[in-house]
Simulated assay, not measured.
Amino acid sequence: MLTQHIIRTAVEAALAEDAPYGDITCETTIPADETGTASLTAREDGVMSGVDVFAAAFHAQNPAIEVTSAIADGERFHKGQSLATVAGPVRDLLTAERVALNFTQRMSGIAMMTAAFVAAVDAIYEGGFETRSGMHVARPRRYPRTRIVDTRKTTPGLRPFEKYAVVCGGGHNHRYGLSDAVMLKDNHLAALAARGIDLAGAILHVREQVGHTTHIEVEVDSLGQIPAVLEGGADTIMLDNFTLDDTRRGVELIAGRAIVEASGNMSLDRVAAVAATGVDVISVGALTHSVRSIDLGLDWQGR
């Protein structure tokens, strides 16, 4: 969760990194008593994320700076649109500018990419669950539409910001971290197998040790593993790098007895076809590890 404490701590650290001993450019060129106004302007279309973070960067530099937002997180904006204005001492405005933009540009880029994945999935349901472009569209069992979710492939230290941005783009969050849920992957299963514990037994072994509210997910890389995972009682089964045909077979085999997640090298070109197999969730690491920041700028308006 992106709290005010997390935001404040991160922007203060970023400001200290950027100007550890002050901003020598501003201090040698701008009078200490000069004030001014600037506008946050979109250089391209996008989806907003980070309104509070943008403001916090300026307030951490100088609480007297006035920040007025013209857009809310999750809203779309267009090239040339003014998204916010800032007013106050010019030295402080210019010192905080880059930190404020770095956060907001990246978060808006994540929101924009997420929105594109969500739109690609939503498009297959238009006109009902019929054949679309020669492709049968199956309904997911757990949700009205297949969900796009993020992963733990985030920038170290910035996970709360990046996962929040995914939600701004219409996506959902996977587990926040290792403490949130059990996720048995190939190496975990190999380690258990070395102790003589089979796949179904591994899940039961975990279930015996955790609380009843703890969610258990298991990653599989073949259809042959699914019966044992179902026998063990997994809550979610992740189909890792499955073909479309095998994904469809996996959904049919699981038959609603667990949440079905598809994962592995998910692209915008492929995601609609994967959703059409009827999986409940598609996890996309690219939302946070391969995103391009949206181009935003702070345009000077003078005194």
Rank of each mutant, 00 (worst) to 15 (best):
A19V: 13
R248G: 09
V166F: 01
R141M: 04
I6M: 09
D180S: 11
G74C: 08
F161H: 06
A64P: 00
A165E: 06
L184F: 06
Y125F: 15
L93N: 08
A193H: 11
A57D: 08
R76Q: 13
E12M: 09
G157N: 09
G46T: 07
D221T: 12
A262V: 12
S222Q: 11
T28N: 13
F54L: 14
T151A: 01
G201M: 05
I259P: 02
A96S: 14
S290C: 03
Q209P: 03
G297H: 10
K153P: 01
T154L: 06
K79F: 04
A191L: 14
A194G: 12
R257F: 07
A70C: 08
R152W: 01
R292W: 01
V260L: 06
P20D: 07
V149P: 00
S69A: 15
A87T: 15
P144N: 05
S49P: 03
A234S: 04
A16T: 08
D45F: 11
G46K: 06
A191W: 07
K79S: 14
T277I: 03
L2M: 10
E208G: 12
S293W: 01
A32W: 13
E208P: 01
V167P: 01
V149A: 14
D269H: 13
R248D: 04
K153N: 01
R257Q: 15
A200S: 15
S49Y: 00
M135D: 03
A100N: 09
A119D: 15
D45C: 07
N187D: 08
R175S: 04
D246L: 04
P31S: 13
R195G: 14
T3F: 12
T68A: 11
E34C: 05
G157D: 09
E231M: 01
S293Y: 02
V137P: 02
A115G: 03
Q301C: 12
T151D: 00
N102W: 08
G127C: 12
G109D: 00
G170L: 10
T131M: 14
T131H: 09
L83Y: 11
A14R: 06
G233A: 06
Y125P: 02
L178K: 03
S290H: 01
R76N: 12
K153E: 00
E217S: 05
T277V: 06
F242G: 05
D180E: 15
P227S: 04
G127N: 11
D52K: 13
I203S: 00
Y21F: 15
S108Q: 06
A120P: 03
M113A: 11
E126K: 12
T236Q: 10
M107H: 07
I110E: 00
G250V: 13
I282V: 15
Y164N: 02
S179F: 14
Y125L: 06
V274G: 01
K163I: 00
R249I: 12
E219A: 05
I203F: 01
S267H: 13
I226R: 06
L93Q: 09
Q105I: 02
V281P: 02
I237V: 15
N265T: 04
V279G: 01
T131F: 14
D52T: 05
G297D: 14
I237M: 03
T214H: 04
L184C: 07
